[in-house]
Amino acid sequence: MKRFECLQAIAPLMKDELFVTTAGGATSEWNAVRPSDGNLQVKTLGLCSSIGLGLAIALARRKVIVFDGDGALWMNMGSLATIGLHQPKNLIHICWDNQQYESSGGEPTVSTAEKIDFAGVAKAAGIHSSRCVSTMEDLKEAVSYALTHDGPHFIWVMIEAGRAQVPPLKYDELENKYRFIRYVEETEGVNILRIPIPHSYEVKKDRP
């Protein structure tokens, strides 16, 4: 199964979850399937799981969904241990495994030789709700379960390589950040873009 078909299949299950998506097809395809200001693109290979962890810790009652890849996860496998340590109940970590660095020319990853068991690694790191799926039915069931039960959850999805012909994101990372922040502000009723408080200087008191 292709990633794009998977994204189309799980999109109807979603409500107001926040999404953190790794660079490449996962970002462009998800934004084509489910455009939302609650989608954050990631430019640093491997960092999506850590950014998702920070979001999940700071917004403990909001579901946060991370779209990782096999190459990206390999680069930041330590984040599985960190997620296992902190046990964010609201984090759903999905790794789309196409066994290649798709955005970097299709070179092999650690997954290509089929020796790694990412779901086993996640489970051993303390992410008890960890599983591997390779059919559409199992994927939908796994995502439904994760959306309705406390996590953290890790879902390792075996997919075919290949990106769908969808347009790239229409805005850059700065606009993405502002849109995302405004979306969180609106839906959480919080103020994030604060104006710095001048009195924090206390210039007169502390200047020698």
């Binding site: 950014i51 920070g54 330590g78 960190t82 969180v184």
Partner: peptide, 20 residues
């Protein structure tokens, strides 16, 4: 939030900032 490697920490701080 103790992390294993500092780069993870930059990610965690980024997510936390975006959440307020």
């Amino acid at each position: 939030v103790p992390v294993g490697r500092e780069e993870e920490g930059i990610g965690v701080c980024t997510g936390a900032y975006l959440a307020g």
